[in-house]
Design a protein around this nucleic acid. Structure first.
Lengths: 342, 342
DNA sequence: GTGAAAGCGCTAACAG
DNA sequence: CTGTTAGCGCTTTCAC
């Protein structure tokens, strides 16, 4: 009874005793089909559980009503963003395809160009690129970038106020009385990472606190790399009393390292993150961090993209959302340094 | 210089001065291409930034090396699961496509059948169905279900020990001294929801505590529906002193409703959730909940699916992972009821 | 070693 | 109103 393999338009046509073209017309509600034929074809479609192949359709058509979200990996930031894209897609008539490179193992740099090339023109009408690694993704297909690569780019972009957020984080630590404040920086090729470091340096500078080179270590937004960086930062006798990490995952890694080293957080070491992903509240102690409206960023990105697809034009080409500090339990005034400190 | 529209195999062929067939052979590393031709074509591919269209390829080929994850919506549970699928996909040579219906607005029931129909046979080699709404998705394509629909199904399945988890949650509340314990149930068509209710009832029964009908309200795993259900549960004078919600999102909704009603959590009302999604730690107070190893479930689902695709067979067809209680701050011994209580 | 031609499932002219 | 035909981008026999 059930078809062992995919039921195609040809099966429907055969069973309904009409041509393939007629079935296609019925599916697409084109004029010029007799009421009776229409009904019969519809019945067969129902009976066979036929559904047009997205692949075949999109090979033939220009439009697919499918939007692609291209991510390098599925981690807290990108998945949080996905929730926002889902919010925005409801009721628009578009569907969502998320394509994931499967982490850094596959292709280093330029994954989004490759994916775009593979999917665009067919399958998707446009794409949201999440933290793309290249800047010159010029295509005729509508594209919106979230947290883009550094460098000049004319792509419509969504990001948040990284500079201000980093300033807030650093000023918070300075305000608590910290002077020796280290930083775990992000992926150097991303604008967001550069701005976060810049904000940190600016706040330190304004407070008249010098930043020694060894206080800044590259965490690359990556938990594993951040662990090594945190070790370098916290190992020496001159370790900082506070650390600002460029994202929450690095901050959590730093807390783990601190614990391994026998340091208490926040008593011996204050830690501030960035992003405010849900996970930041899960760690012990709950993380003080900078909130980025990630879901909203996803939402706005999709809205912008749909506008771009529909009108080909867009009013504002760069949207920056506000960041704000969220104080939890991982920050504290610095303890008096005792000779016992290793 | 840059192609204004998609560069196809035809463009490559023309520029390299060979036939389309030859380019295809080069791409697929088939034998029978002169070394020199091979090099020239490769150079042109590089120059033009050509990448084969996934759509065209998969229309022609049986295998695509792409796995589909089909979800009804992108919410905390499914996105957490996605992280697990990403963990599992690394290094397998497969890529991940997630397809989202975009929430309940689109099609009520049977979305997964529709999607499967649209994608399977073409585009994806197999699929993971997350909380599918129907049980008879029989297809020749390999399929694994996560948290499936109720009813007999021979689909390979991943779930967690819902019955035991619900028991733990309820016994925790009973142990604190609660007797009037309400429940916000899940989506009645899902096995998980039924088992969670069953576990609750069993624990209550074992403790000799009767369950009055009005103590059980359907939250459908949906925050909005759960708000109404919670209102019904908490409005009356005989309101429970504790609520067990079938998932974290409902539990969080219950806490919101309690707050609106002027009830303090946990002093006036204890709340336990289910899932332990990251968000559960974010709410105030942090939620006591039942941990489901969601990421692991995603991981196992993908592993099982790949096995199924490769071997056509699979050793175990139903994997159930353990659940455990995570006590946070939303539960407490019941307060003495005073006449002031509304 | 290379290219012409057929066909994957579908849609859009165009004839009949 | 309906069916025939061409072709989307690609792979694969099969001649040359």
């Amino acid at each position: 009874m059930l078809p062992s393999s995919r039921v195609t338009i040809r099966d429907v046509a055969a069973r309904a005793g009409v041509s393939i073209a007629t079935v296609s017309k019925v599916i697409n509600q084109r004029y010029g089909v007799a009421e009776e034929t229409n009904a019969r074809v519809l019945a067969v479609i129902e009976e066979l559980g036929y559904e047009a192949s997205l692949v075949a359709q999109s090979l033939r058509n220009r439009r697919t009503n499918v939007i692609g979200i291209l991510v390098a990996d599925l981690e807290p930031f990108s998945t949080e963003l996905l929730k926002g894209t889902a919010d925005a897609i409801r009721g628009t008539g578009y569907e969502l395809v998320i394509y994931s490179a499967g982490g850094r193992t596959s292709d280093h740099v330029g994954w989004e160009r490759r994916y775009l090339s593979r999917l665009s023109g067919t399958l998707i009408d446009g794409a949201v690129l999440v933290t793309p690694t290249v800047t010159d993704v010029r295509y005729d297909a509508p594209i919106v970038a979230v947290d883009p690569h550094t460098g000049p780019s004319d792509l419509p972009t969504i990001d948040s106020d990284n500079l201000h957020g980093a300033r807030l984080a650093t000023e918070h630590l300075l305000g608590l009385g910290h002077r020796r404040i280290g930083m775990l920086t992000g992926r150097p090729d991303l604008q967001s990472a550069q701005l976060r470091e810049q904000g940190y340096r600016a706040a330190m500078h304004d407070a008249g606190v010098p930043v020694e080179p060894e206080l800044v270590q590259e965490g690359a937004y990556d938990p594993e790399i951040a662990v090594d960086a945190a070790r370098r930062l916290l190992a020496g006798p001159l370790r900082p009393t506070a650390v600002f990490a460029a994202n929450d995952l690095s901050a959590i890694a730093a807390i783990d390292v601190a614990r391994d080293l026998g340091l208490r957080v926040p008593e011996d070491l204050s830690v501030v993150g960035f992003d405010n992903v849900p996970e930041s509240a899960l760690c012990t102690p709950p993380l003080t961090t900078v909130n980025q409206p990630i879901r909203q960023m996803g939402q706005r990105a999709v809205e912008l993209l749909i506008q771009l697809i529909r009108d080909g034009q867009v009013p504002s080409t760069h949207i920056t959302l506000a960041t704000k500090l969220v104080v939890r339990r991982s920050t504290h005034s610095p303890a008096e340094r005792t000779p016992l400190d290793h």
